[in-house]
Amino acid sequence: MCYTVKVLFHELGVCPIVHEIDQSPEVKEMEKALKRLGCKAPSVVPAVFIGGILVGSTNEVMSLHLSGSLVPLVRPYRVLSGKNAQP
């Protein structure tokens, strides 16, 4: 599901910063911290933050996208290029 969220953000013109917690020696501590922030078990990843605010996991991101609410959230973080330089 992490891949799906990354692809979606790239399609929206956003280059996300990705932290692969499963490759970190502190993976258990990071998972606990994410749960304390409100990520629900069993799937705490991907934990998507936009502008430093926890949005949620894949289900929450997809729900925001389908409702049309995701684009306004990511607009300030879009990379300007020919294809996505629109206002």
Rank of each mutant, 00 (worst) to 15 (best):
C2P: 05
Y3L: 13
V5Q: 02
K6A: 05
V7C: 10
V7Q: 15
V7I: 13
L8D: 03
L8K: 07
F9D: 00
F9N: 00
H10D: 08
L12W: 02
L12A: 02
I17S: 08
H19Q: 07
H19V: 10
H19E: 07
D22G: 11
Q23Y: 05
S24K: 06
P25D: 12
E26S: 13
E26L: 09
K28W: 07
K32P: 04
A33D: 10
L34K: 01
K35C: 11
K35S: 11
K35D: 03
R36T: 12
R36W: 07
G38D: 02
C39K: 15
C39G: 08
C39A: 13
C39D: 03
S43G: 01
V44F: 04
V44A: 06
V45M: 04
A47Q: 02
A47G: 04
V48A: 01
F49Q: 00
G51L: 02
G51M: 02
G52Y: 06
G52A: 04
G52T: 05
I53F: 02
L54K: 06
V55C: 03
G56W: 11
G56K: 08
S57V: 02
N59L: 09
E60R: 02
E60L: 07
V61K: 06
M62F: 15
S63M: 14
L64A: 05
S67F: 12
L70K: 06
V71W: 06
V71L: 13
P72I: 08
L73P: 00
R75T: 12
R75W: 13
R75L: 14
P76V: 09
Y77D: 00
G82D: 09
N84R: 15
A85V: 08
Q86R: 13
